[in-house]
Every structure is written in C-alpha cells, then in structure tokens.
Design a protein around this nucleic acid. Structure first.
Lengths: 142, 142
DNA sequence: TTGCCACTTCAAGTCAACTTGAGGTCAAGT
DNA sequence: ACTTGACCTCAAGTTGACTTGAAGTGGCAA
C-alpha cells in the first residue's frame, strides 16, 4: 500500500496531525480515503507540505498558498501569475538582503550612534521604497 | 522644533497612529514628550520604524525586533549576536531562493504533473533541510 | 472478547499584532 | 468664548493559524 496514515505523514513531514486535519479542513491538502477512521494520504502530500512550509516562510498566507498550489499540487495558474509570485519573492529577497547588510554593518561599524550613521541610513533607504500590494502573513519555522 | 507630532510621524512613516501608540506601549519606540496630550517623537524614530518594518518583513516578531533594536535604536548587542541574526536572514534568503526557483521552474516546465517532476522534486529537496531554532512570526507589508 | 490506543469530531481556547469604539481633553482658529 | 478636530485612555473586538480538551470509534494483538 502506498498510502500514508496521518500519523506516519505527521512524523515524516514534521507537521502535527492536528495541523494536517486543519489544512484538510481549509482545503489546502486532501486525504485519499480512510482506513477505519484514520485519514490516508498519498505520498505527493509530502511534497506539498514542503511547498506549504516554504510558502509560509516566504510570508504567504495559507489562502495565498492555496491559490498557488492547492489540494491538487500546483494549480492551473497561468505562467504569468507564477512569475508574478516569483517576482514578489525576489522583492522579499532584496528586502532581506538590505536588512542583513544593515545588521552586518552595525556589527562592524565603530560609529557611536548607528541611528545617525550616514552609511547605515543609506543602507536602510535602499529597501522600503517599493511596497508590495499583497498582504504578507506570518511564517513559522518547524 | 525638530520633534514630530504623532500625526506627522504616522503620515511620514505610513504607520497608523494607533500602531505607534501600541509600539510605544510595548516599548518598541518611545516618545520624547507631549505637547498638550499629543506625543512628540524625535526624527530618529522614522529610521527606527523603517528598521522595524524590515524586521517584520524578515519574519521577526516584535519581541525579537525589540531585542535587537529596542527603544534606543540599535542596542548594545554583541557583534556575534548581530552576525547570528544576519546568518538567520541568509538562511531565509536561501529558502526563498529555492521557492522562487521552484515557481519559475513550474512556470516553464512542460511536464504534465509537477508534483512528480524529478527536477521539481530536486528543487524542493534543497531547502527544508536546515530548520532554524527560532520562531518566525508574521510579517505584513505596509 | 476484551483492551488498547491512535485516531476521530466539534467546540472552545490561545497568541501576536493590531484595530475599533466610547467617552474625554486640549490648543488653535473664528 | 466657543467650536473643531486631532489627539488621548482603556477595554474590548478581530484575524489567521493553530492547539487543546472532551467524548467517542474502530482495527488489531492477546
């Protein structure tokens, strides 16, 4: 049998069973059947959960994640929409890079007050210029 | 006078006044005084808010942000701790890069089922290997 | 056949990060 | 002197993403 009991999936993916049930309830994943009461999942769900965890890390809400790769894996989203999402992530990467640079600068800069250090100010001005229209949401690491 | 009325700060920073009051309540920023009832902020608060917004985007909770750059701007955190945070962000950047690559691949790949496409699977296996110990929290864009 | 125990459902609780609302205050313009 | 409107406080409400608890179920080993 190639189906995974919810307990097995929980262990393999690191996602608690309660969360798996919750994800199923909101239509983010789907179980292929039951054995007795127990939900059974296909192995592709494992891949899907990896995708979901990455999506959360990227700051997407579960609703947004669902719209990109819902219960049947990747949806029929047009090429353009996918590239759009990728562009969002690129923007996020640029913001993170700015923050990282600012942090590294502060770690090394000997100026007395960072808040007034012109180099620091310049680093910060790089980023918050482009505001994304979408709402970003919480991302929790396993 | 170089002090900013809360309304002015709200407009300049794009952060609602209610949120500024909330941030002050939890000790994330501080006002330098009042004019009548109105809170007055120093101009460095603007820089601080930019930092806070970047921190949120990076997935840090307000508590974490406070511990790195609290009410007096950047704290007296040791060099090492700052580099540690920067390393966290680098890890996050790598995960986001993975997700972006996966998305771009899906946009171009002609395989019928992405969930089983070996190239796609390989892309995903790159990332969720290293789990950060810290909790990541919600990040909302303005 | 009897336990066991990992599952089940459903409702309610939790947490961070805000937002909203009611009722009050004050400085500035008319 | 009076009105206006942007601020004030404090309590309560909201949202997303889960988690917890109580009470029940069903396959499998002894």
């Amino acid at each position: 049998m190639f189906l995974l009991d919810i307990g097995v999936l929980a262990e393999k993916s690191g996602v608690p069973a309660s969360t798996l049930r919750y994800y199923e309830e909101i239509g983010l994943i789907e179980s292929l059947g039951r054995r007795g009461l127990r939900r059974q999942y296909g192995p592709e769900t494992l891949t899907q959960l990896a995708l979901i965890s990455l999506g959360k890390l990227a700051g997407f809400s579960l609703e947004e994640i669902k719209s990109v790769f819902g219960r049947q894996g990747i949806t029929t989203l047009p090429r353009q929409a996918l590239h759009g999402r990728a562009d969002d992530i690129d923007a996020q990467i640029r913001r993170l890079t700015t923050l990282r640079n600012a942090l590294r600068h502060v770690a090394e800069c000997t100026a007395p007050s960072h808040m007034e250090c012109p180099k620091f100010q310049a680093l910060l001005r790089m980023a918050p210029h482009s505001q994304p229209s979408r709402k970003r949401r919480r991302a929790k690491a396993s």
